[in-house]
């Protein structure tokens, strides 16, 4: 993807935006980029705990907005991988403290003055101020969707809102796929979702206990585990960087594989 500033969004809550931000952000850093992940979920911050950095937050994004600290003072360096930083959301303030103009200035400075290759912006659920602020400075977007009705519908709405903001480099991540259910015909498969939403795919992440286990202890799966989900997040990072990575098989399910082959032009 050409976009340096990428918003992670979904409309619906609980589909995996924060998980994706942490895992893809860390994987991008692991693959050589200087990355900052920004939490814009003011009042409900959790990117810091998902990344295991909660003990190190001193200043947050609202402190930067309101001039109580320098931008660089609010950047928390992750010690597990080079060149990964977190800019936390404020837990005590509300969405009214968000400001699109200031957000744009900060993202611009991170890229132009601080030399970040990638700014990954975790958006809150919904389509209101929080989402709009998260999206305002983005040049590209990753839409996270679960293969279920409310999530797909909300994703469609979000894709429309990103287009309205003239954000066109938008890719789809299908998260929490359960191969066994897909096989039984009880869960939408990848090509169903792509057919309905009509945007380009960049990743398929299976439902994976490793995500919960990693999050429990503040580890980031894409850095520390060899799970299927970890592999999927690393592949997404590589695809963002322009590598052509074939889609992994989630299990030996031939129906599922056949479905994938149908999408990616095989026979």
């Amino acid at each position: 993807m050409k976009a340096k500033a990428i918003v992670i969004t979904s409309g619906k809550g609980g589909v995996g935006k924060t998980t994706t931000t942490a895992n893809v952000g860390a994987a991008l850093a692991k693959h050589g980029e200087k990355v900052v992940v920004i939490d814009t979920d003011v009042g409900l911050r959790n990117l810091d705990v998902v990344m295991g950095l909660e003990g190190r937050v001193v200043f947050d994004i609202i402190d930067v907005f309101e001039g109580r600290c320098k931008l660089t003072q609010a950047l928390i360096r992750d010690k597990r991988v080079d060149n990964l930083f977190l800019l936390a959301a404020s837990q005590v303030r509300d969405k009214n403290s968000l400001d699109e103009e200031k957000m744009e200035t900060i993202v611009k400075r991170l890229i132009e003055e601080e030399g970040f290759d990638r700014v990954i912006i975790d958006s809150p659920a919904g389509i209101e101020t929080g989402f709009q602020t998260a999206a305002c400075a983005a040049e590209g977007g990753l839409v996270v969707v679960n293969p279920e009705v409310a999530s797909v519908r909300d994703a469609d709405r979000i894709i429309g809102l990103l287009e309205a903001r003239e954000i066109y480099e938008v890719r789809l991540i299908i998260n929490r796929i359960r191969p066994a259910m897909v096989k039984r015909g009880d869960m939408l498969e990848v090509n169903d979702v792509l057919e309905i939403l009509g945007i380009q795919l960049i990743g398929i992440v299976p439902e994976d206990e490793a995500i919960l286990v990693s999050t429990n202890v503040g580890n980031i799966a894409s850095l520390s585990s060899n799970s299927k989900a970890s592999e999927a997040f690393n592949n997404i990072a590589k695809r963002i960087q322009g590598e052509e990575i074939p889609y992994q098989s989630l299990d030996s399910d031939t129906g599922f594989l056949a479905g994938l082959r149908r999408i990616f032009g095989g026979s």
Binding site: E148, V149, V152, R153, D156, R157, G160, V182, R184, G185, D186, M187, L188, E189, D192, I196
Partner: peptide, 20 residues
């Protein structure tokens, strides 16, 4: 009938209304 086919049809209808 696969439940996902039912879901897919319902989604298509809902999204048609949403987009319009």
């Amino acid at each position: 009938k696969k439940t996902k086919d039912v879901l897919k049809e319902r989604l298509k209808v809902v999204i048609t209304y949403d987009r319009a």
